[in-house]
């Protein structure tokens, strides 16, 4: 890979990323995460504009909005691209190596839509897979930090993850680390939860991290009730909420190992709840009580 363009460094969820590009306006969403430290870069990306982007040749793994091709030759093993279905034009393409530590992104010149995709979902997909190699996993959840306590609320879409996080902010003054897709990382056998720049449409995130003290599974109910879950129950509910690497056995294995270690150390609760202050207090008291006995 030839790196002759201007590079910038970002530290996202404790993972350093170097981006080489002649244009940085499109990376404004990452501004909170800029860093100066050149040591231990875990992901290097070269980004360039082109007037035409070729379709990658290989085996089509995923055929959704973002197409995903397995490449058998060269240093890259995967190619992701987005094609405008009407014009059949490829707007952007990312070629990445097996461990997701090297990436080459090409986007269509003079196309604002393509520029938005580079720092948006393309970089997010690369990041989400690279973090697995660094004992991390992205989970579909809303994460809050309050007085050094880290809590994530997770549930199927539309159950009220963001509502609970918002209630914590309103009643206790908690900070929302990421409203939709925070990162969990295993560090010295403890789990930390990190904010990332990708949090859905609301763009609600911080460049902060805190130790994870509880995972709260949510269910809407008429009365508030909190109960601790056994590992076997919680495991079956939490895994589907994580962005798992279904495309590769070895990477999946790595990811499940990390998640297993995390779940052994972090209590999981089921919160049947209404969107009110009582639900907040119930969780807060349970976490405080548990902290007392640690």
């Amino acid at each position: 890979m030839v790196i002759n363009k201007k590079g910038r460094l970002y530290n996202i969820a404790g993972m350093k990323i170097k981006i080489c590009s002649s244009e940085f306006a499109m990376f404004r969403n990452l501004d909170l995460f800029v860093c100066e430290d050149h040591s231990e870069i875990m992901l290097e990306m070269v980004v360039k504009a082109n007037s035409k982007i070729s379709e990658p040749v290989g085996f089509l793994l995923i055929n959704k909005d973002v197409k995903w091709v397995a490449i058998s030759e060269g240093i890259y093993s995967h190619s992701l691209y987005f094609c405008d279905e009407e014009t059949k034009t490829i707007l952007c393409r990312a070629d990445v190596n097996y461990e997701w530590g090297l990436a080459e992104i090409t986007y269509l010149k003079n196309c604002p839509q393509a520029e938005g995709m580079v720092a948006g979902f393309l970089l997010e997909i690369i990041f989400r897979n690279r973090i697995i190699f660094n004992q991390g996993v992205v989970i579909h959840a809303s994460a809050v930090s309050y007085k050094g306590l880290g809590i994530i609320f997770t549930a199927p879409t539309q159950t009220g993850k963001s509502t609970q996080a918002k209630l914590w902010a309103k009643h206790l003054g908690a900070q929302v680390l990421n409203d939709d897709r925070p990162v969990l990382r295993l560090e010295n056998r403890r789990t930390r939860v990190y904010g990332t720049p990708w949090s859905g449409e609301k763009r609600l995130f911080l460049n902060k991290a805190v130790e994870l003290n509880a995972i709260i599974l949510l269910e809407q109910a008429k009365e508030n009730r909190l109960k601790g879950l056994t590992l076997s129950t919680s495991c079956a509910q939490i895994l589907p909420r994580c962005f798992l690497p279904y495309y590769d056995l070895e990477i999946m294995d790595k990811c499940l190992k990390t998640l297993g270690e995390m779940l052994l150390g972090v209590p999981v609760y089921l919160l049947e709840c209404k969107p009110d202050r009582e639900a907040v207090d119930l969780v807060f008291r349970a976490i405080l009580n548990r902290q007392k006995y640690l």
Partner: peptide
């Protein structure tokens, strides 16, 4: 892939 995750056996589909 069949693996034990935090004491629970799970089977995940691949590819």
């Amino acid at each position: 892939l069949c693996r034990e995750v935090a004491g629970q056996w799970v089977v995940v589909p691949l590819g």
